[in-house]
Write a protein that binds this DNA or RNA. Structure first.
Length: 313
DNA sequence: GTTAGAACTCGGGAAACGAC
DNA sequence: GTCGTTTCCCGAGTTCTAAC
């Protein structure tokens, strides 16, 4: 396992990158004077570039959209109660790094940050299934990770992507997602700090990982805890500026790994490897963009902010 | 192959300006 | 005041980009 650097050392300052909510910014001064001199004398008019104006509008809209109040309602209030014997049975299924007991980590962080990734049988959250789940608590320590294969109960046609074949997961000793949920919930409870939210982090999570999770919870008829917050590193990475002063051409996880020269310590497109990569990327991103954990929380969203899955799927 | 958000392109309308 | 030109704003539509 790769030694994992603590994010705490790089968390963080003020953001000059996140736009102020609301106001439209205009270029005045020299630009205005220059164009005025060329075209129509001394009379001035608010001048802006189209690109800047459009960019600012979008940033502003996004900034407002993500602001919210945080609360610390217990997850226990919104999930089904499971028998202890069931939990013990589920733990015996083939999962590795399952936490055996509460770690008891306490910190000054304003949230528990869980970096996660999934592998699936395809792109459609409606018709495809999760086949691997990995999560790491950024705080580290004992029992800070979970990685498990998931039995999708269907043929896997995209094994060429992640190397996970039907023969590996379509077995009775591999948990189905509904069987894995109690383990996941127990893990989260073991990591969550009192009166502090849980912040899940994924790359392209808003469009991919979180909707998949949402659908799997719904198919399992178990309500996802309403106080879980999610943050997507993809739009954050789009703010990055390269050494030429331009935005990165690609903000894929692979490209970010190369951008930050993060070594690949395993098979790409396996959940835990991508989690490890994303942990490094998140550290670099937050440092480079001067993002604090509270600012990550401000950019977070809840499953209720996403479109609701159709019932009965 | 799916999906959703971001980024981009285009065109219409409005405003400001100069020329008449 | 009217007309033509230029520029900006804004919405709609299209394309791109991530994820497996």
């Amino acid at each position: 396992m790769v030694a994992f650097p603590s994010l705490a050392s790089s968390c963080l300052l003020l953001s000059s990158v996140i736009p102020e909510p609301g106001g439209r910014r205009r270029l005045g001064g020299s630009c205005s004077a220059l164009r005025g001199a060329q075209n129509r004398g001394n009379k001035t008019r608010p001048i802006s570039t189209t690109i800047l104006a459009r960019s600012t509008r979008k940033e502003s809209k996004q900034s407002f959209k993500t602001s919210r109040h945080l609360h610390s309602e217990s997850v226990e209030s919104s999930i089904e109660v499971l028998k202890q014997s069931d939990l013990e049975h589920l733990k015996s299924l083939q999962c590795y790094n399952i936490p055996q007991k509460v770690s008891g980590v306490k910190t000054d962080w304003p949230a528990t940050i869980l970096v996660f990734d999934i592998e699936t049988t395809g792109f459609s959250r409606r018709y495809e299934r999760i086949i691997e789940f990995a999560v790491r608590d950024l705080m580290g320590g004992k029992n800070s990770t979970i990685q498990t294969l998931i039995n999708p109960e269907r043929e896997i046609k995209n094994a060429y992507v992640h190397g996970i074949s039907s023969s590996m997961v379509c077995k009775p000793d591999i948990p189905r997602f509904r069987e894995f949920i109690p383990i996941l919930l127990q893990y989260v409870l073991s990591r969550q700090m009192a009166d502090k939210p849980v912040l899940w982090v994924a790359h392209n999570g808003r469009s991919f990982d979180v909707p998949f999770l949402m659908y799997e919870f719904q198919r399992s008829k178990i309500e996802m805890p309403g106080d879980w917050l999610f943050v997507d590193t993809l739009p954050i990475a789009r703010q990055l500026i390269d050494s030429d002063g331009e935005k990165l051409k690609s903000v894929s996880l692979d490209n970010l790994r190369e951008h930050y020269k993060i070594p690949l310590a395993g098979s790409a497109h396996r959940a835990m490897q991508d989690v490890i990569t994303l942990c490094y990327v998140l550290q670099k991103l937050t440092f480079e963009l001067k993002l604090t954990v509270p600012q990550l929380l401000e950019r977070s969203f809840r499953v209720s902010d996403l479109s609701t899955p159709r019932p009965g799927k």
